Every structure is written in C-alpha cells, then in structure tokens.
Amino acid sequence: MASQGTKRSYEQMETDGERQNATEIRASVGKMIDGIGRFYIQMCTELKLSDYEGRLIQNSLTIERMVLSAFDERRNKYLEEHPSAGKDPKKTGGPIYKRVDRKWMRELVLYDKEEIRRIWRQANNGDDATAGLTHMMIWHSNLNDTTYQRTRALVRTGMDPRMCSLMQGSTLPRRSGAAGAAVKGVGTMVMELIRMIKRGINDRNFWRGENGRKTRSAYERMCNILKGKFQTAAQRAMMDQVRESRNPGNAEIEDLIFLARSALILRGSVAHKSCLPACVYGPAVASGYDFEKEGYSLVGIDPFKLLQNSQVYSLIRPNENPAHKSQLVWMACNSAAFEDLRVLSFIRGTKVSPRGKLSTRGVQIASNENMDAMESSTLELRSRYWAIRTRSGGNTNQQRASAGQISVQPAFSVQRNLPFDKPTIMAAFTGNTEGRTSDMRAEIIRMMEGAKPEEMSFQGRGVFELSDERAANPIVPSFDMSNEGSYFFGDNAEEYDN
C-alpha cells in the first residue's frame, strides 16, 4: 500500500510504541512475548500442572481467558453494579484439565481477579502490559475465525453469508486497541457500523446529549479505520460520505453494504499476525530463551520457528480426527482463516481442507461434555516452508469459486491468482447506482469489472525454506488448481455463540 510509510507498523501498534527502528520493534515485541511466557509459567505453578498438562491447549485457553477477564475493567465495573446470582464479580476462573488415573478430569478453578492481575503485572515488570493482553485477544479471535462461520451475524446486519472472507476479527472485544483495529476485516468494521446506525434509528437519543457526542466521535473513528483499509480513492470518498452524514440511517447502511461487497474484489488491507497460545510461549521462556534479547516478529519467520520446536497437546472428542484438529489450530496460529487453501497447503506441506470436510468441533470443551471418553493427542503445528504475512489485500483475480465463501483475504505475501467468483459478486451490483453516491458507485463498479483474471497478485513473492531466515531465496510455489480455494466452501461450520 502506498501510504505504508505514514502508518505505524503493526509491531508498533502491538507494543504501543512511538516510531521505533526494526531492532527496537523486535525487542519490544519480544518483551511482550516474554511477559506472556513468564505469566503462563507462574500460572502453571499456581495450578500445580504437570509439564504435559501445561502444554494442553484447553488449559492455555482457560488461563488466557482468566487474565483477560481480570483486566476487563468495563465488564468488571458492570458486574459490580449489576450483581447477578451466583456470579462473584471479583473472581474469575474456568475449567482446568488434569490427568488422573490414566483419565482426563475437569476441575473448575476460581481465583481472585486481583490475584491474577498481581501475577500478570509481576510477570511483566510491574506494568499492565496491555500489548500482551491484546495479543491474547487476537489469538482467540484468530481461533474463532478458523472455527466458526459468522453466517447468522452477517444475515442479521443485512449482509450476504458468502462475504465471510471479510469477517476477520469479528469476535475481537471493543477494547483491543490499535492492534485489534489493524486485524479487523472490512466486513467486521461494516458490521460494527451498521449495528451502531441501527441503534440510532431505533433509539432517538442515541446521537443526542453528552453521551451522543461520545457516540458520534466513536462512529467517526470507526469510519476512519474502515476508510484506511480501502485502497481505492472511490471507496475512500464513499467512506467520507458515510462519516460526514448528519443523521446516519438506511442510506448509510446501503452504502456500507455496497462497500463491503466491493471489497470482495477491490480488497481492503487487513493486517495478519501470528499470535500463538500462551502454552507455546511459556515452555520456550522456561527453556531459557530470551525473546527480548533475541527479538521477535509476528509477521516473519519467528512464529514458524517457534511452532517448529513446540509440543502442544489437545483434548480430542471420541469421533474427532486429531489431524483435522491440528489443521484448525495451525490455521489459527498463522492467522489464515480466509487465505486461499492452495497457498496454505503449499506452505504447510500437507493438504489443507475446507472447514466442512474437517471432523472436528471447536477447541474448547463445553462444561456439560462427558470427560470419560476424552483422549488427548499432539497437535501437528509444523510447516514445510515459511512466508511473510501481508497486510495488503493483493490485486484481484477471477477463479472458480464456491457456493460458500466467494473470495479470499490473503494472509501471506505469496504470488498467486486470487480466487473470487466474479459473476456471483457482480450480480449483486445491478441497477442500484442512484442517489448521492452514484458517481462513486459507478466508478467502483467500473474498477471491479476491469479486474483481470490473468493478473498475478504479489508478483514474484515466494515462500522460503525454514533454514532461509533472511528470506534470501524465494520459492514461487505451484498450486494444484483442481483443489478448492475457499475454506468455508459450501460450508456447515458451527455458528459462533458468545
């Protein structure tokens, strides 16, 4: 993207840094990872977990959730003011799984939030270390993106479920800051804005008074975040219109849905970061690795190297396929839920299948599930090659597409044709070009129609051997075009429920 120079890199967003050079960025990201790792080690000690239990991804998720809940100030305040039966607002906890007599047992633990905050700050040299908290939120978000298709949420806001490739980060909490905003897809931002506008339509006082002023500035800020994701002048001009509207209503909703559809071809720039579970960072720190000293990046080879040398386990339900569970977590670790499966298959070195073909449910185990038949197995999170994460949407291309997802959002900077089903997408653009945004709409449609099938995206960008740390010898991959490109292809993934 041309304006790259004016933006802070995501590592800076990730670490609240002012302008830093590459070495400083690597050190501050490393410091953040160190903090998460030290916190995780301490929690495993508190909970008396064995090494194996500490490497269980379900335990990692519970521990991450506990610290996120302990620092969720708004919710904590709300819980104190609106006490609900049987919930102690000062405590947080969740299921911890232990191996007892050759069987997995679930144990519900409860801790004072104050105590968890103390352990977290102690692991982070006394700081609140917001960057580390956001990092864990993005890992949870990436896992949700890989596990669930947001059909219901899309339909509720009037969008087409086939636009799911635009929904990265749709389950990120509001408090995820600049680093969170960077990884949100165009569809996620559109959905947040539509929800806001709908509230304004239904509630006369939404934009009024002292609160209304705050609401208005939040609305304009979200519009600017979305505008910054678009790469064409016409899309940005249309966002200006939406932002400046005196009284946002149905016309703005129409414009936003139009823009979301246009992003299936004229893709937005959305950041991709490899955020790993805390149970990967903990053992690495415990083994003596100093992330701050060595430096770390979320968008280069580092996460690949770390996963190459990590042992992570997962509980497996009786009829689940461990290899499929591994694929789910591998995609989440690489922030690749909406990437082209052919690119992923090449990088991973084994075939990556669409969601609907995987015999696996989510990673988390519900409290009512029976533990008797639970097994555990090693997650295979290694890769054959590594590639640089991208934040450009890439230019655009036609490809055989599917009944489910009709476009992709690249996660890796790797040369390819970008699949999208042009006739299906263009069919949504018939007729409606009147109104105050008509010239911009016409211009956007013209650009979409001009998108050429034979153009290559990320020209000359390749993948790298894991021994090639400096990215000196790019390998331009070859793809098996007979395979499906979309992950949520004609899909039956479970729906995400809060």
Rank of each mutant, 00 (worst) to 15 (best):
T232L: 02
S345M: 07
G126W: 13
S438Q: 12
L307T: 08
L143C: 10
G17I: 05
K91T: 14
A179K: 05
Q231N: 00
A427N: 15
N417P: 15
Q12D: 00
D240H: 04
S60Y: 09
G177Y: 09
H135F: 07
I444K: 09
T188Q: 07
L68R: 00
A237D: 01
S245C: 12
C333A: 15
G462I: 10
F258K: 10
N247C: 03
N224A: 14
I138Y: 10
V352W: 10
V29H: 05
N498A: 15
M440D: 01
R26Q: 08
V343Q: 08
N492P: 08
G93V: 05
L143H: 04
P423V: 03
S407E: 10
M159T: 12
A22M: 07
R74T: 02
R121L: 05
S287M: 10
K90S: 02
L47S: 02
D16S: 02
N473E: 12
D302V: 05
A403G: 02
S457L: 00
V280Q: 12
R267V: 08
T45E: 09
A123Q: 09
K90M: 06
R74N: 07
P453F: 13
I444S: 13
S170Q: 07
A278D: 05
P173D: 02
A129V: 13
I194V: 15
N417A: 01
F420Q: 04
D51Y: 02
E443H: 10
V109S: 01
S314R: 06
P410C: 00
D421I: 14
G54V: 13
P423S: 04
Q311I: 15
R361I: 08
A70R: 02
R243F: 15
G295V: 06
A337G: 02
E454P: 15
K113W: 10
Q409C: 05
E484A: 02
K305N: 05
R152Q: 08
I96R: 14
I119N: 08
K214Q: 14
D491N: 14
E443Q: 03
A178Y: 06
L315N: 04
D491E: 02
G450Q: 03
N250Y: 13
T215I: 12
D480R: 09
S28M: 13
R446Q: 14
I36H: 10
N492D: 12
I57Q: 08
I116N: 06
A442W: 15
I301G: 02
V280Y: 12
K422D: 02
R175D: 10
I475Y: 09
F429G: 06
T378I: 05
C44I: 15
G295M: 10
L379P: 14
F338G: 02
L143K: 06
E80P: 04
R156I: 06
G212L: 05
L47N: 13
V299R: 08
Q12F: 02
S478Y: 09
T188A: 08
V186D: 06
A471V: 14
F206G: 12
G86S: 03
R152I: 06
S217W: 02
V109A: 07
L143Q: 13
R162V: 00
Y52R: 03
G126P: 12
R400N: 12
D72A: 13
R121V: 01
L306I: 15
K90P: 05
K198P: 06
Y313N: 08
A442H: 00
T360Y: 07
V67M: 07
A387N: 13
V100Q: 07
M448H: 12
T430G: 00
S170F: 05
Q20W: 07
S345I: 03
F429W: 09
D255N: 15
R216K: 02
A181V: 04
S478L: 01
C275N: 10
M191D: 10
R342E: 09
S141R: 12
S482E: 10
Y487W: 09
L110S: 10
T92Y: 11
S376A: 00
S245K: 04
G288E: 10
N395P: 06
T424L: 03
P89N: 03
S367F: 08
G180Q: 10
N224D: 09
Q415V: 15
M238P: 02
R446A: 01
R342I: 04
D439V: 00
V312S: 06
S457A: 01
T151M: 13
L341P: 12
A472G: 13
S457C: 02
K198G: 12
P173G: 04
T171Y: 07
E11Q: 03
P248A: 01
Q364H: 05
L466N: 00
L379I: 02
R162G: 12
R150C: 10
L133F: 08
G209M: 11
M456Y: 01
D302N: 12
S457P: 13
Y52E: 06
A263F: 07
S383Q: 03
N395T: 02
K98G: 13
E292T: 12
G349Y: 10
L358R: 12
K227I: 04
F458V: 12
R74Y: 08
H272V: 13
S377P: 04
R19T: 01
Y296C: 08
E64Q: 04
D240I: 12
L358W: 08
K87F: 12
D51L: 00
R342N: 07
W120R: 14
Y148L: 11
R243I: 03
E210S: 02
M374C: 14
Y97S: 15
R208Y: 06
T430I: 03
R199L: 12
V29Q: 07
L79A: 12
E469A: 00
R246G: 01
L68W: 01
R75M: 08
L358I: 02
I41H: 15
N319F: 15
R236N: 15
A366F: 10
K77C: 01
Y111P: 08
I425G: 03
K184E: 12
I41G: 00
P248D: 06
R152S: 03
A451T: 13
V285I: 14
R162Y: 03
D497M: 15
R213M: 03
I316T: 14
L166E: 07
F230P: 14
S69Q: 03
D16I: 08
E375H: 15
D145K: 06
A323T: 13
P95F: 07
L259T: 07
R99W: 10
L56T: 02
V100C: 05
P423I: 08
F488M: 11
L79H: 08
G288V: 05
V476G: 08
R55F: 10
Y40D: 05
A85L: 00
R243D: 05
K422N: 04
I475M: 06
Q4T: 02
E494A: 05
T92E: 11
A233F: 13
Y313C: 14
Q311E: 06
S353C: 02
G185P: 03
F71Y: 08
K48I: 08
G450H: 02
L264A: 05
E11P: 04
M440W: 07
D255M: 11
L264Y: 06
R382M: 13
I197T: 14
T396Y: 02
S367H: 01
F489K: 10
P322R: 01
G5H: 05
M43W: 09
L166C: 07
N76I: 02
R117P: 06
S262G: 02
D302H: 04
E244K: 12
T146D: 08
S60N: 07
D372Y: 06
T157N: 01
F458P: 13
E46P: 15
N395V: 04
F71R: 04
R175T: 05
R162P: 04
T378G: 00
G462F: 14
V463H: 09
Q20P: 00
M43H: 03
Q12S: 00
A178P: 13
Y385K: 02
Q311D: 09
T157E: 08
E434P: 15
L61I: 12
S367A: 05
T215C: 03
I96Q: 10
E73N: 13
S376D: 15
A401C: 00
S392P: 03
Q122D: 13
N224Y: 03
A411V: 14
M13H: 03
S176I: 04
Y313K: 10
S467K: 00
K293S: 04
T433D: 00
P248G: 04
Q327M: 12
A85S: 02
S486M: 10
G212I: 05
F338D: 13
D468A: 15
P89K: 03
R106H: 02
A260E: 14
N397G: 06
S69P: 14
H140M: 11
V463S: 14
E24T: 02
P419G: 15
I25A: 08
G185Y: 08
